[in-house]
């Protein structure tokens, strides 16, 4: 199973800029873990339904009405690294 994982591609999808050393180490670990996970192939699951949620809950609705969430003086942007006049600030996109 070795070599199955394209570490650079996965890191890009995961938005992680790994150092070369990290990439090597994590790559080795992931190969080892995926080899272990591959034991699931011993099981025939062709007629088994997947479980995404353990309880029989489906859509949960509430009335479409605005409700007060917390104190009015809470500044929700206070924790952001950069904000300006009620907006998040980010570096240039294009």
């Amino acid at each position: 199973m070795s070599g199955k994982i394209d570490i650079d591609k996965i890191a890009q999808l995961a938005r992680l800029k790994l150092t070369d050393a990290e990439s090597d180490r994590l790559g080795g670990h992931l190969e080892q873990i995926i080899d272990y996970i591959d034991q699931l192939n011993q099981l025939d699951t062709s007629s088994v339904e997947p479980t995404s949620h353990v309880l029989p809950i489906h859509n949960v609705f509430r009335e479409d009405k605005a409700v007060k969430f917390a104190d009015d003086d809470v500044d929700y942007l206070a924790g952001s690294p950069a904000n300006n006049q009620g907006h998040y600030e980010v570096p240039k996109i294009i």
Binding site: I10, A11, R15, L16, K17, L18, E22, L26, L30, I93
Partner: peptide
């Protein structure tokens, strides 16, 4: 320098190795 670089550097600097390993997996 740009938004994508900011995302990638932020996450590289901010997460520890086990978290990165699980995000990658």
């Amino acid at each position: 320098d740009n938004l994508l670089e900011m995302y990638m550097n932020t996450r590289e600097e901010g997460f520890g190795e086990e978290v990165k390993r699980r995000i990658m997996l």
